[in-house]
Design a protein around this nucleic acid. Structure first.
Length: 300
DNA sequence: AGCGAGCCCTGCGCGC
DNA sequence: TGCGCGCAGGGCTCGC
């Protein structure tokens, strides 16, 4: 479940279960899901077993759970197809279960937490926590001001109260690149992926190849506002799901796919001007836009 | 610094 | 019915 709203749906679902929970047993069914864990597989298991967890936090698409009383955290990225599900025994998690955490006692009706990931682009890891240095909470979920070293390079996301719109605008306009590339650059602004980039660009009537350097500050403000708005709305609707691949911790899909204006709408009428929308190959991915509202930039 | 390509993977739906 | 292909919401690294 990749982008910010979907990850936040997972984080907020896990919070009441994991905050204060003890980990009894850990089963790594596929070590490929630990590819970002530095150190042997055994250390992942040994550090977690018998440990108590604090409240989970999220920055952009990264989520982490501090280990109580330590400067270490369980870090989780869902990649393209990762899910974190609640259940009891392994049969509740299906064939793509990669890592199983058994809790010391059931919480919110669940005795286990499963990391499920079809494509294995996601991962879990244990990592050091370091101070952000800016005195703000490191992410969304608690006041903890420590961030995992592997997440420190990720920019704050637009829903973070400490997100600095002015600084973002400055950095964006100082870049000489295409706007969608910048929106997807997690070190510049985090949490945005292909869907919400296309949605925010549609809302702002910007072509994905528009040059960042040519954007006036007012346009950047509009874009940031659009990003913020689309992320909030998607979160309020439980995220975007096209199938059972993207669900909350209880396996339930969100509804935001019904509210998409651009993503996945090639061949359909633009909700604003009725022109037929197009899908174009770009950066080994695809971009969706309205050819009338989002005109091709003159020079590239 | 920016950018394209390639890699990490599995599984689905489509056209032939 | 079977096969190959393109496609999928992410992120990282490499070489130019």
């Amino acid at each position: 479940m990749p982008e910010l709203p979907e990850v936040e749906v997972v984080r907020s679902g896990l919070a009441p279960v994991l905050s204060g929970a003890g980990i009894a047993r850990v089963h790594v069914r596929d070590p490929r899901s630990l590819k970002r864990h530095l150190g042997p597989l055994e250390s992942f298991i040994d550090e977690l077993e018998g440990t108590r967890l604090d409240t989970p936090l999220r920055r952009g698409k990264f989520m982490w759970v501090p280990l109580a009383g330590q400067n270490r955290a369980l870090v989780c990225h869902l990649g393209m197809s990762g899910q974190v599900l609640l259940g009891d025994d392994t049969s509740d998690f299906g064939s793509h279960l990669r890592i199983l955490l058994e809790l010391e006692e059931p919480r919110a009706g669940a005795s286990s937490v499963g990391f499920v990931d079809q494509r294995i682009f996601g991962s879990m890891a244990i990592d050091d926590l370091i101070d952000t240095g800016d005195a703000h909470p490191a992410g969304y979920g608690s006041d903890d001001a420590r961030v995992p070293t592997s997440v420190a390079h990720i920019a704050r996301d637009p829903l973070d109260p400490a997100f600095d719109r002015q600084a973002f605008s400055r950095r964006l306009r100082a870049k000489n690149t295409e706007i969608k590339r910048a929106l997807l650059d997690q070190t510049l602004i985090s949490g945005i992926g292909n869907i919400y980039a296309d949605e925010a660009l549609w809302a702002t009537k910007l072509h994905y190849r528009a040059s960042t350097a040519s954007l006036r500050p007012a346009r950047v403000s509009e874009l940031v506002q659009a990003v913020h708005s689309v992320l909030r709305k998607a979160l309020a609707e439980g995220g975007t799901s096209f199938d059972q691949q993207y669900v909350n911790v209880n396996g339930v899909s969100g509804y935001f796919s019904h509210s998409l204006n651009a993503y996945g709408r090639a061949g359909q009428a633009c909700p604003r001007c009725q022109a037929i929308m197009v899908r174009e190959a770009w950066m080994n991915r695809s971009s969706h836009r309205c050819p009338r509202c989002q005109r091709t930039p003159r020079s590239r």
